[in-house]
Amino acid sequence: MGTTPHPDTLLIAYVRGELAEGDRMTVAAHLAACAECTRALEDFQRILQDLESSLPRPPEVHWGAYRAELREKLEARRQRAGGWQWLRRPVPVALSAVAAGALLILGLQTWMYRPAVNGDLALLEETVVASRFDLLRQYAVIERLDLWEDLDVVRRLDELSPRRKG
């Protein structure tokens, strides 16, 4: 032994029968001469068997409820994606904001000058403007999707604070 380096990182692949013939023979030859690697191999094998036979059980899940929740999430995601599809067009967001601002002014004018005559139209414009502003606001936050997780953390602050106090 000692003449060849210990094939440390090949040992696990060796016991799992994943090595190509050349590597497999090299490791086998090394093992025949190296007690240290043979001991390590036996220990690794035992540990892997122990782990496989004692996999911790995850908490119980009601799969019907799990799938229902998943469907809801998927639906919510789809609606959201559909809702701000127009914002994804290659129009700069700033330009959209200006357009939305102009719409708001127009909407206000309509509302101020012809409240009784064109009530429905004004209401419609108002709704459109309001929803677009809301979308813009959402978009600014959602723009970086990874922020969702941070938002999630912020949301959980409420859940955590009482526990920390108490």
Partner: peptide
């Protein structure tokens, strides 16, 4: 392979192996 080898070496040490 390196990840697995390091993981198992750590576990082996934990269980009192060398």
């Amino acid at each position: 392979r390196v990840h697995l080898h390091r993981a198992l070496t750590t576990l082996r040490r934990t269980l009192g192996g060398t």
